[in-house]
Design a protein around this nucleic acid. Structure first.
Lengths: 225, 225
DNA sequence: TCAAAAGTGTTGGGGATACACCCATGT
DNA sequence: ACATGGGTGTATCCCCAACACTTTTGA
């Protein structure tokens, strides 16, 4: 084999991943944030993330950081790379390029505490987050845009809910992500017409008329891209 | 300042950009390919690309590689990052992460020859390219998908044409990118209804009835994202 | 006059929007 | 009985797709 080493002009940079992980909590769209324990930006909120290890795939790094920086138990239901942030001055420690990922965690995955070198982790409002470290506000904004795109188009909303759910619950997910109100009748028509939901038993809510429970129909999968 | 050096766990990887540059030629969608002059994959076709230099922004690196690997004179009319390829085994020289870019070059930018350490550069069929080095076929396929998305939605087709053009020419761009035929009447209706075109003089084609010339209306811009 | 390409309208269907009342349950 | 939230139908509009003939020019 000839010439198969990294050529000298190959710039070495720090390679990182950051994750915008979303879930529903309290009828609101939340994003998982960690409180940094180290400089720079110590004690500021930031998206979970960190450096990719040698021989580690990008999505594996994203999963590992989610698990070690926060004690999130469940697997994400959706994980996709959506943009790479490599601006020269984005990190004061040097040239660090971050491949940003969008994750969706199912309902019930809401108890988190800090892990690794973070002071804590919390689910905070995705549309009105606190001030974020580095360029993480930019990353979050772009993640929200991508999430809204994917919603209309790949049934990502189902990934936010448990196996069985009611139509009003599903509508709440849509409204939280799109950040606007939807018409109940039109929403039901549209979703049922897609044929991706099948009814099961009934359910008593705390108050008011009980809602029909649905589950995702067999052979329904989320789009890959 | 404390602790602002790259931490030891920061994996160093090679950072590269690859560019899928598209243009119309001979009524067909073409992609700019270079013939590699070095190992690995010497003499194979590949997308132009190379390593990002220290202190250089990603999009600057993409522009520089376009100019040095090929003698493309004009500036791209559109340049956007669309995906990052970082699979561990994608390059035999080591861990190289490539931020892939989509570029659109205007008509007239068709004379190219190799530059830098390539043997040559040519505009070849985008839908039926030759066998490509590394994972560049995957990158090209994804670039085509993104180009098709952007077309319907951000008037990218205009960037393929000179300042003035006819509706049949514009339709040819759409058909070449979407890789299917469109109905002439519906196409004209749709495009004219958008109100982004304004007519100018007439033009005699070689044969047949002359077509009306159009230019893009004032205050029309391509979407940023 | 012929060949070649440009130009032109109508119809039907599907999906989105707007909109107000009745139903089932727990208290 | 009442408060609370779940469930339902219709009319309209707009966008898209299908479809064939006439017009203008150069040779």
């Amino acid at each position: 084999m000839l010439g198969l080493a990294l050529p000298p002009q190959a710039t070495q940079v720090g390679l990182a991943v950051d994750i915008a992980a979303f879930a529903m909590h309290g009828g609101e769209l939340r994003v998982l944030l960690v409180q940094r324990g180290e400089l720079p930006h110590a004690r500021d909120w930031a998206l979970p993330g960190g450096f990719v290890q040698p021989g580690e795939e990008l999505h594996e790094a994203a999963l590992r950081e989610l698990r070690t920086e926060t004690t999130v138990q469940l697997e994400p239901r959706h994980l996709e790379q959506f943009y790479t942030f490599g601006e020269v001055g984005r990190d004061p420690r040097g040239r660090i390029v971050s491949v940003a990922h969008l994750a969706v965690l199912p309902h019930g995955t809401v108890s988190v505490s800090g892990g690794g070198h973070t002071l804590g982790a919390e689910w905070l409002s995705a549309h009105h987050p606190p001030r974020l470290a580095f360029d993480h506000q930019t990353i979050l904004t772009r993640a929200l845009l991508r999430l809204q795109l994917r919603l209309e188009y790949a049934n990502l909303a189902l990934e936010f809910l448990p196996d069985t759910f009611t139509l009003p619950e599903l509508q709440t997910v849509y409204e939280a992500i799109l950040n606007r109100q939807l018409d109940k009748r039109n929403f039901r028509k549209r979703l049922l017409a897609q044929g991706i939901l099948t009814p099961s038993g009934e359910r008593r809510s705390g108050v008011g008329r009980p809602a029909q429970l649905y589950r995702r129909a067999k052979n329904v999968r989320v789009a890959a891209l």
